[in-house]
């Protein structure tokens, strides 16, 4: 198993770090002093954890980059691309998901693409439904935030489930989103807006 260099904005340390440990090291003081937005991302299937800072904005898509040059792109909080994880999510159509998080009901389509070993694009289509679950208190660095839990179930070649914790102001505080079969899910936590 590869061990990836982990990104730590705060210490620059590249040693293997327990995810809980890294989360604990992002103290409220430290977060408050940060001049840039920050997300904390875990990839449980790979045993990876990293903090990422914004590196680009194209329309509604914001890209975040880790110190070891892994890049994750989210369209209004919904994952649309990964780069540098191996078996990357190359692109995604998440218009339906974004609309459903804003309250639109009913089934919708979703699609994602990867690049195969012969350098061809392979697109996978999904049919999804979003369900809204009750409120929850999210423990944000700035204090507890009331969030609504959305659960998205998509059926395609397999079934995937994504979770989104959305604040009253529309901020996506926490999510668990599927990237690709080999990468698994990404858990993204908003640490600094």
């Amino acid at each position: 198993m590869r061990t990836l260099a982990l990104l730590l904005v705060l210490s620059g340390c590249a040693a293997a770090i327990d995810p809980v440990d890294l989360r604990a090291r992002l103290t409220d003081d430290y977060i408050a002093r940060l001049a840039v937005p920050l997300i904390l991302v875990q990839v449980p299937q790979r045993g990876l954890v990293a903090t990422l800072v914004p590196t680009g904005q194209n329309g509604t898509v914001r890209s975040w980059r880790s110190r070891d040059a892994v890049q994750l792109s989210y369209d209004q909080g919904v994952l649309v691309a990964t780069r540098g994880l191996g078996h990357d999510l190359m692109s995604a159509d998440v218009a339906g998901t974004v609309a459903a998080l804003r309250g639109r009901s009913g089934q919708y389509d979703r699609a994602s693409s990867v690049v195969d070993g012969a350098f061809r694009t392979v697109v996978t289509h999904w049919t999804c439904a979003m369900s809204r679950h009750g409120g929850l208190s999210h423990d944000a660095p700035t204090g507890p935030v009331a969030v609504t839990v959305f659960v998205e179930t998509c059926t395609g070649p397999t079934t995937i489930e994504n979770r989104y914790h959305v604040g009253a102001d529309g901020v996506l505080w926490w999510s668990r989103q599927w990237a690709s079969t080999e990468v698994g899910v990404l858990e993204t936590e908003r640490m600094k807006r």
């Binding site: 590869r2 590196t55 980059r65 892994v70 890049q71 540098g84 994880l85 191996g86 990867v114 690709s180």
Partner: peptide, 10 residues
């Protein structure tokens, strides 16, 4: 898969 190449600049 698609490799561990560092991400391109956006």
């Amino acid at each position: 898969g698609s490799g561990f190449d560092p991400a391109p600049p956006p």
